[in-house]
Design a protein around this nucleic acid. Structure first.
Lengths: 342, 342
DNA sequence: CTGAAAGCGCTTACAG
DNA sequence: CTGAAAGCGCTTACAG
């Protein structure tokens, strides 16, 4: 069943069918209704590749995630929520979505760009990829509109979306302070990653505002995984004036810190309050449940789509390459690991 | 840069360029090499919509997941691993991947099928969707090749892929038995879901083979979520002859059972051994770490792709609609929650 | 081994 | 308001 067949059965030309189905104003109401009904009955679906070819636009967005090595574990839990949000938001805007694959061996650097050209993609959404992805930078440089969540590339038509890491960290510290804590330490992520650096900055800013001095040994670095949090907490608990509360820049590290506390004979939250960042599934499953700064996956995905659409809808090209990132608010979730005073 | 331009610069016809780029045998080696080099230099990428139009095949597979309501929580953790595996396996087979969206309001039942027709999709991969999805059944009935992981639809060209739930459950029970446990209870999922029913069947079969009698109150139903596991374990611990070990058909429920044990003053694994199913991220994060029957997300995704390809590569249409499901092995992971004897 | 030509299924000026 | 015709960028018989 193609448009010619449908036209024949409707007793009009293919041009009229096309106009009716595309809701063009020139078609008479009666004709339009008749054609639509028939199309429905016959299960006619316009051939998108043909439309793309002639219209020179595909209404399709490319989606990239986790290029190169399997994402470093830290962000995995969020990807799915963001994926769902992106998919929903994009389809509501009548875009189709194509999954792009990590570069292969031949022409590794240009493969994203090639894929965009081959499929006539209008833009690309990128979810949390390694900061040093060459292929992504080639794509961004080419001028293809790209919206990235927690990404590092920049280009002439590029937007970055990110949680408000600094504000989230500040809220965590303020919460601990309000509980009476004055000795608040932090476990950071790898500081070359922007989210890790931003969370540390927020921690420092809150401490400063609250008049808390931060001894150098109150800041210790982890790698976002469980064991590093446990090790870091052990270090923190063995300093001269050990902290009464720990803000970990990731939930896995926070859970590791809870393990270290248990091993040291400390009860959480009575002897040590702990708060994490991200709100991974496990945060609600451990005991005591982990307080955390939740990232809003849905909002992140929707913000990425909104930003990309703004780019597509002809927003002028940006003069500078370093776009102001779009910031999505976080939300403090107080649970058992920081419920009572310190 | 299109094929005409490339042909002009190569000094040959578009037909020859097409043949060279598609590795047809008729082209002379010299010509092919020259054209390929030029194409690379100029960054030429063949227009896929045009190819699809003329070849009448898109080399594109549709991907559906989580249709209808947000998946019931239980499978979320796996989706991402399966998605990655599917994406990789499909791209290695030179297929493109298009994300299909949950049915909208108009024509809800036919929308997947419509999408397949519009985009000329060759087949569809479906990840864990509600068992009562009408739209999916319409698609399956249409004869479009579909491979589904933990799905319920059937159709003329349909394959179902699933973990070996029964064998996994058996392995869990055997493991507990080997540790010395003779009073082994189970917490099931909602029994109308195939994986839940299969896991219960495996539990029963193992008990029977090992000569363990299963009192009726040793089998209690949960909903795969944390709280239901905690409640179910409370019930199990309050029966006449309480179990010394619990096999929960899902990790969240198993973790809930550990909480119930702690509340009852029982130490895990000394007083009560617990083992779950799935291997969600949290299983490795709780304390003691949760023993579990791991599903192999990667293998599931790869099996789905392999099964779909078999379908596409002209495997004869199946006479009966109820295909034998493809079964992927599970793996027993022994961790702290069942380490020592009972 | 190569080219001229037809055609895949649409949309859109252009003419009426 | 409608139709005839051109053309989007490819591939593939067909002829040489």
């Amino acid at each position: 069943m193609n448009i010619r067949e449908l036209a024949r059965r409707s007793g009009v030309s293919t041009a009229t069918v096309s106009r009716a189905l595309n809701d063009r104003a020139e078609v008479s109401e009666a004709t339009r209704a008749r054609i639509r009904r028939l199309a429905n009955e016959l299960g006619y679906a316009p051939n998108e590749p043909a439309r793309t070819l002639v219209r020179r636009r595909s209404d399709t967005i490319g989606l990239i995630w986790d290029s190169g090595q399997e994402a470093q574990g830290l962000h995995n839990p969020f990807l799915l929520g963001m994926l769902s949000a992106v998919r929903t938001a994009l389809s509501e805007a009548d875009y189709h979505l194509m999954l792009l694959t990590t570069p292969g061996t031949e022409d590794p650097d240009g493969s994203y760009l090639q894929a965009v050209r081959r499929h006539n993609l209008e833009g690309v959404i990128v979810l949390t990829t390694p900061p040093d992805d060459r292929c992504l930078q080639v794509l961004a440089d080419s001028g293809v509109p790209c919206a990235g969540i927690d990404t590092a590339f920049t280009g002439p038509r590029t937007v970055r979306i990110s949680s408000d890491n600094a504000a989230g960290a500040e809220a965590a510290v303020e919460h601990l302070y309000a509980l009476g804590h004055r000795r608040i330490a932090t476990i950071t992520g790898p500081l070359h990653l922007p989210p890790a650096a931003e969370r540390l900055a927020g921690y420092r800013r809150a401490c400063q505002r609250l008049g808390l001095t931060v001894p150098p040994d109150y800041v210790t670095e982890g790698d976002f995984f469980l064991d590093s949090g446990e090790r870091a907490a052990r270090r923190l608990l063995s300093v001269d004036q050990p902290p009464t509360a720990i803000f970990a820049a990731g939930d896995q590290m926070a859970i590791g810190a809870m393990h270290a506390a248990a091993d040291a004979g400390l009860a959480v939250p009575r002897d040590l309050a702990v708060i994490g960042f991200d709100n991974i599934d496990a945060a609600a499953l451990v005991r005591p449940a982990l307080s955390t700064v939740a990232q809003d996956q849905r909002a992140l995905g929707e913000a990425a789509v909104a930003a990309l659409r703004a780019l597509l809808d002809g927003e002028a090209e940006r003069p500078e390459r370093t776009a102001e990132p779009h910031i999505v608010p976080t939300k403090l979730l107080v649970r058992g690991s920081s419920r009572s005073g310190g």
